[in-house]
Design a protein around this nucleic acid. Sequence first.
DNA 1: AACTCGGGGCA
DNA 2: TGCCCAGAGTT
Length: 212
Amino acid sequence: MKKEKLNKNEIKEVLSKLEELYKGAKSELEYENPFQLLIATILAAQCTDKRVNQVTAKLFEHYQTPAEFLELTEEELGVWIKSCGFYNSKSRNILETCRILVDKYNGEVPQVREELMELPGVGRKTANVVISNVFSQPAIAVDTHVFRVSNRLGLANSDDVFKTEEDLMKNIPKNKWSEAHHWLIYHGRRVCKARKPQCEICTLNDQCLYYK
DNA sequence: AACTCGGGGCA
DNA sequence: TGCCCAGAGTT
């Protein structure tokens, strides 16, 4: 990462251009139920949201609560979620998580990030998605796209995910956190790719620290 | 910091 | 075929 930093006006300009490009961008994982969002987000690791939605659409018809999930064996759940990939570990983690939710949290999803991160299969990114999306807590989930793009553009300046979160929360107006999170993901997937970034066609390249 | 898990979509 | 995918856990 470069050591340079953008000034406030440059940050404003970058955010303005991202908004212009991806205005209205939002998650394809739209679950208002905390438990369902938690499960969908665990499944979304290294998997497209579209496929997660295909799986959960059917799965949640049959199993809706942690207690109901515990009726399944690991092998049975594995069949349901197979197309999301990593299904052995995800199946094991999800059922163990459900066991903890039932035993320790009365079948509810805890609203504390540290408690969420103690659940198997739930890391900081998934915990942030849950607390920000359904519990209205201040957090920005930093996945690989958000991390890479925000540091390339200069909206963050760190090789550490926690620091990147802090930078983003500082540099982005609070009422834009959720939307900006998706701008960065969209830009990362379509233009600012990990391997072959499309810098030539990127309309932000004139102020991009990575491009310079 | 590097490695592993993984089926499915796409070039 | 090879590459990639809204991560997390282990060593």
